[in-house]
Design a protein around this nucleic acid. Structure first.
Lengths: 193, 193
DNA sequence: TAATTTTCATACCGATTGGTATGAAAATTC
DNA sequence: GAATTTTCATACCAATCGGTATGAAAATTA
């Protein structure tokens, strides 16, 4: 009975994610959203709730995509160290190639909202925890295969990689000389041995 | 001729810095500013110009204070490595003690405004460059005194410290377990040898 | 004290904010 | 095809946004 929903909810959420990712929460207006989602205000409100609920849905969508993206980047490789190096280098390459610089949606939110809203403090923290577990599993694999020294502290190093990843992502927003980033990557990866 | 300015311009700027530091640019309203600066709107506009000009003045005020703060923290110590370690540990201690979590005003701005305004891209980049030079001088001092191995790459390591500093500052906004941060610091500082 | 000059507080400006009431169009079911 | 039900677009809402015009109060100079 009645009409079916005309718009693709997933596509609309992706569009919202792009806008929030690029502009952040406060700088994004409802007008920005209606334009980019190609939806009118009442459609947005009936489908996603208010602006904050939509933002949360967009962020959860992002973290899910981000995890699977990183997972696939890290897996296809024989050397663990090379896989991690390639992951970092691709990250830098992508950011320096494109002309816009959105960084990481989750990190942006950690800066903008986490200190003012516990919901986002938890959401962003859990994402970083998840990433560190991913790295930790990789390093442990490297230890088991003999690629890394066996008394390496996998957990501590994984957490260091996450900190480095955050630092690099944020610093790139100020577009420093590329060697600055490259040096940081090289130094950090030299801990894996 | 005429009255003298009744308010302390420096105090007002400090108050503005605190508000922008805590809430960011977009989330701070003129009402927030008048309340915290204890000034009426026309006084703010005549003294500092519009909201963006005031923000820029507040940020420049911050970077100046920040540099001298770091300078003094790094100098009074015999061992370079200990000085740097103490600097990082105090940073973490301060953030975990207090209940609010403002992080670094310059890093917040790098995330919120640098990608959308070249003026702030440059301003924040130059601050990070300055910090890396500070660290580099410290490391070179450590090399000369024999504390560090002489073929250490002082510049690359200094840049790595800046990346790590940024990563730690940002990650702390999501309040992860303290060991997460401590591990990252220990690993990073193990590069200084 | 009179004249002058600047500061600061009130009150207001149009524009935009996030959010919603209303009603027509469209698609389903009977 | 008629009745029903939901979607979506227009138009609007109060509140707040950044910014300013106006005028009284205050402090200086003469």
């Amino acid at each position: 009975m009645g009409r079916k929903r005309e718009f693709d909810e997933e596509k609309a959420l992706d569009a919202a994610m792009q806008v929030f990712w690029k502009k952040g929460y406060h700088a994004t207006s409802l007008s920005d959203l209606t334009t980019n989602m190609e939806l009118q205000r009442p459609s947005i409100y009936s489908a996603f709730g208010d602006k904050e609920k939509l933002f949360e849905a967009a962020l959860r969508n992002y973290t899910k995509l981000h995890i699977s993206h990183i997972r696939s980047k890290l897996q296809h490789n024989k050397s663990v160290k090379n896989a991690i190096r390639l992951f970092f280098e691709d990250l830098v390459e992508g950011e320096y190639q494109g002309n816009q610089n959105k960084g990481c949606f989750c990190i942006n939110t950690m800066v903008e909202l986490a200190p003012h809203d516990e919901k986002f403090e938890i959401l962003t923290r859990e994402h970083q925890m998840y990433l560190s577990v991913l790295f930790q599993e990789m390093i442990q694999k490297g230890i088991q295969s003999g690629e890394f020294h066996k008394d390496l502290d996998a957990k501590a190093l994984a957490q260091t990689l996450v900190v480095s990843l955050i630092g690099i992502t944020v610093l790139m927003k100020s577009r420093p000389e590329r060697s600055f980033i490259d040096n940081a990557i090289t130094s950090t990866l030299s801990l894996l041995k």
